[in-house]
Design a protein around this nucleic acid. Structure first.
Lengths: 98, 98
DNA sequence: TAAAAGCACTTTGTTTTCCAAAGTTATTCT
DNA sequence: AGAATAACTTTGGAAAACAAAGTGCTTTTA
């Protein structure tokens, strides 16, 4: 038997980062505030998890202007999609026993 | 939309505890050493995760004797099975977007 | 127009979690 | 008797999570 947990992605150990990714798989774009309200997080906490995902290049930030007001949205990258899928595959394999 | 992460079980945030549970879903009994080798963990690390699972009553310990030598095995409880399934359901719902 | 509020952060500091290494007790192998 | 193995517990340090407060900019409200 092979170690079943080594294929899991450490970045997705966190429920919050997992939540962000699954929101972004379904929604092309989402704003900081929407995420914050949806996941019921404080600003700092969300921001730090987002920056972890950004650093891994799993998500991307868009800073657009609506008039003069900035509107920040996040979206998933191809790498992010790939990594997330791989993680889910690994999870499934682990659960099904190999 | 509802917060997708609140239904996730915090105990299963840990890859190691997740791994233990998925091993125990498939195998009726498993020994400390088998788990240690399979998951490639140090004694202390494994023991502490096991005690977290035991405290939650998700797993049970059996201390049997083979001759005079103790043989410790772990197995999943009904509560553990239930909690694990609920967690997997919550995961699936989250990923599929509600 | 001055004050209050919202957005998207960053900084600070505390608490929690994780984990390796060493120590422990009991048994078994050499 | 001495070394090794099993199954832990204890210790201590590093990393992660988190809340709260602070920041700079903009917009809304009084």
């Amino acid at each position: 038997m092979k170690n079943p947990i080594e294929a899991l992605n450490k970045i997705f150990d966190s429920r919050i980062r997992l939540g962000v990714m699954s929101v972004l798989i379904v929604n092309e774009h989402i704003s900081f505030n929407e995420l914050k309200q949806l996941l019921e997080l404080t600003d700092g906490n969300l921001a730090s998890h987002l920056s972890t995902l950004e650093l891994a290049e799993y998500i991307r930030v868009q800073k657009a202007f609506i008039g003069k007001k900035t509107n920040t949205t996040y979206s998933i990258t191809d790498l992010g999609k790939q990594a997330f899928k791989a993680h889910l595959d690994a999870l499934e394999k682990m659960i099904k026993g190999l």
